[in-house]
């Protein structure tokens, strides 16, 4: 399968934080969700991919091309929604339309205006008069209206109320049905990703903890709930992390079926990405 995005050994150092050897690939037509707590390195990864950060080591290829050498060509085909970074808020959607006509070769004014109508955004009102949800929709409309082959979305649902979040997720789902577009999507709101992501990459403290298909994660990973004595019998290689609570142990296991056949523990819950994140970050080894 053709890879749209390949990140190899991406390392970026700041005082007090380091993104360490981040590697992953996004196949064509797929959605990858990057999850991790705030400050884990999600935005650093995205900013490096987009060359907003310039000083890092490692190799990034987009559409098979080096992201530094082919910057212009690549960016003609990428749509971007960044967290809190956009056009100055004194501009209007009409201004954005005029501007983008002079920036993208493939800018589709009709498509942009259709999105404005669909999202009920007034074309001649300043961005500063829009609610947070409306702004996000405008950012998404802007990211989509040049027919990008890859969408890079950094926290596109953060700060939105549940209704606006559901609307935004629905927009992404409809894009996927229409186009052969690939999406790299970072979020700390993991429930959004469970429904739409094909792959999940989990970054913690600047390192990739796991990168797998969503089905693999949700079908195979589980949380075994057991007593202290039962936990003592579990071999270290059969679990990833565990958390003690007042009455029981919650044990993160990578293969529910194998675990069930090996141990006599009856309660193994299905995992959610939230559970996974909490156990991976807060759990003990």
């Amino acid at each position: 399968m053709e890879n749209i995005l390949e990140v190899k050994n991406l390392t970026k150092t700041f005082p007090g934080f380091e993104l360490k050897n981040v590697s992953f690939t996004l196949p064509k037509g797929m959605i990858m969700g990057i999850i991790g707590e705030n400050g884990s390195g999600k935005t650093t990864t995205i900013k490096s991919i987009l060359n907003i950060y310039t000083k890092y080591s490692g190799e990034i290829k987009i559409f098979g091309l080096d992201n530094h050498k082919n910057d212009k060509e690549i960016k003609e085909n990428i749509g971007v929604v960044l967290d809190d970074m956009f056009f100055p808020e004194i501009l209007t959607p009409n201004d954005i339309n005029n501007t983008m006509q002079g920036i993208y070769k493939n800018w589709d004014s009709k498509m942009f205006n259709d999105y404005l109508k669909e999202f009920s955004l007034a074309p001649n009102k300043q961005i500063k008069t829009f609610s947070k949800g409306m702004r996000k929709k405008l950012e998404i409309a802007t990211a989509l209206s040049h027919h990008p082959k890859l969408l890079i979305l950094d926290e596109p649902t953060s700060g939105l109320d549940p209704v606006a979040r559901a609307e935004v997720i629905q927009i992404f789902q409809s894009i996927l049905e229409k186009d052969e577009c690939s999406i790299l999507l970072s979020s700390h709101i993991t429930t959004d990703l469970e429904h739409i992501a094909d792959y999940i990459t989990f970054i913690n403290n600047g390192e990739i903890v796991l990168s797998k298909t969503t089905n693999d994660l949700l079908d195979n990973y589980g949380i075994a709930k057991c007593t202290k004595n039962e936990f003592k019998d579990i071999a270290k290689q059969d679990y990833i992390k565990y958390k003690k609570s007042k009455y029981e142990y919650e044990v993160l296991v990578p293969n529910k079926k194998e675990f069930k056949t090996k141990y006599n523990i009856s309660v193994i819950d299905k995992i959610t990405l939230d559970d996974l994140m909490v156990l991976m970050i807060k759990g003990e080894e």
Partner: peptide
């Protein structure tokens, strides 16, 4: 104020 600079880098050239 609206961090246009970072956004503008994501645009061609």
């Amino acid at each position: 104020y609206n961090k246009w600079d970072a956004y503008s880098i994501s645009l061609p050239n």
